[in-house]
């Protein structure tokens, strides 16, 4: 299978450098050395808690943010040259935002919002745009009468459908879905997830589905990648990764997710917080919270190693 998206050694550092007076500014490594490969038609789930760098990663993938290092290749085309030009990315890869209402300009009608990508990315003329808009509305199950309304008149679920329609307008091959349902109620969440599944099958799309909700990610993904403190700590098939985690952090995540019929299991250990991003530990970032950590974990960050069965984990003492 050809890769729809390939990322190598992607890193992003905020801050850093020196001030006018020559003092070093503090730097935060939001994403460090992330390499991913997503096959065509596949859904890769990316999970992690707040501050793990998942949104920074997503913004780099769609060209909204400049990587500090690394290479992005979409559909076999190296996009390193076009970085900083979201329009070049926009024809190949699109983004669906977490907050559906905030991602729509409050002073534009839905028609104006949907026309923008058709005009600027697809270069369609007026009749072409009109035809494509009604196609898009059909695809996301919205009625044509919504077109001349403003975003505040819509519920979260409807607004997210509009966001999806906009992302699909220029016929990209890949969608980056950044927490697309976490602002929605559960009954609406299921509607949107099913819509996404239908669209993927019909339009042969590739998804990167980012979420903090393990159950949602598991329900939609073929493979899952777990991020912790800016690094990939584990990747593997969705069916296995939470059932038989190899990395202790994945195990902690899976055990913490509230589940019907499972008793409360408070996480062990005092330190339940992320390390200080301005003073990251030299070794594995999870070592302070990890029950299996030993001296070698604290020396250098462990590399992501294959563990067989399509799985990989960045752990020296895997489960």
């Amino acid at each position: 299978m050809s890769a729809a998206l390939q990322v190598e050694g992607l890193s992003k550092t905020f801050g850093g450098g020196r001030s006018l007076l020559g003092r070093a500014r503090p730097a935060v490594h939001a994403v460090e050395d992330v390499s991913l490969r997503v096959a065509r038609g596949e859904t890769l789930g990316i999970v992690g808690e707040s501050g793990c760098g998942k949104s920074t990663l997503a913004r780099m993938l769609v060209g909204l943010s400049l990587p500090t290092a690394g290479r992005i290749e979409i559909a076999g085309r190296d996009l390193s040259e076009q970085i900083g030009d979201p329009a070049a990315f926009g024809r190949l890869i699109q983004y669906v935002f977490q907050d559906p209402i905030a991602s729509l300009n409050p002073r534009k009608t839905i028609r104006q919002i949907l026309e923008a990508p058709l005009r600027h990315l697809a270069g369609l003329d007026a009749p072409g745009r009109r035809a494509r808009i009604s196609e898009l509305l059909d695809a996301v199950n919205l009625r044509a009468e919504f077109l001349d309304r403003y975003p505040h008149e819509f519920s979260g679920g409807q607004a997210q459908r509009i966001g999806i329609a906009r992302a699909l307008a220029a016929e990209p091959r890949i969608l980056v879905l950044d927490e697309p349902v976490s602002a929605l109620d559960v009954s609406v969440q299921a509607q949107v997830l099913n819509l996404l599944a239908d669209l993927r099958a019909r339009l042969d799309l590739t998804y990167l589905f980012i979420s903090h909700d393990l159950a949602v990610v598991e329900a939609v993904s073929e493979r899952i990648a777990v991020l912790y403190f800016g690094r990939l700590v584990e990747t593997g098939p969705a069916a296995e990764i939470f059932a038989r985690p190899r990395h202790p952090y994945t195990a902690l995540l899976a055990a913490s997710a509230p589940q019907v019929g499972r008793p409360l299991s408070p996480p062990a250990g005092e330190a339940q917080e992320l390390p200080d991003p301005y003073a990251p530990p030299p070794g594995c970032a999870f070592a302070a919270r990890c029950p299996r950590a030993e001296a070698d974990c604290r020396a250098a960050p462990p590399p992501l190693r294959p563990m067989g069965g399509g799985r990989a984990a960045a752990c020296l003492h895997p489960l």
Partner: peptide, 23 residues
Amino acid sequence: RRLIACVPEIGAGRRRLEAIPGL
């Protein structure tokens, strides 16, 4: 019943959710 059915649960694998139509 339908609200419970449309919440995905960890360990159930990849599947179609039973959404409640409408608002």
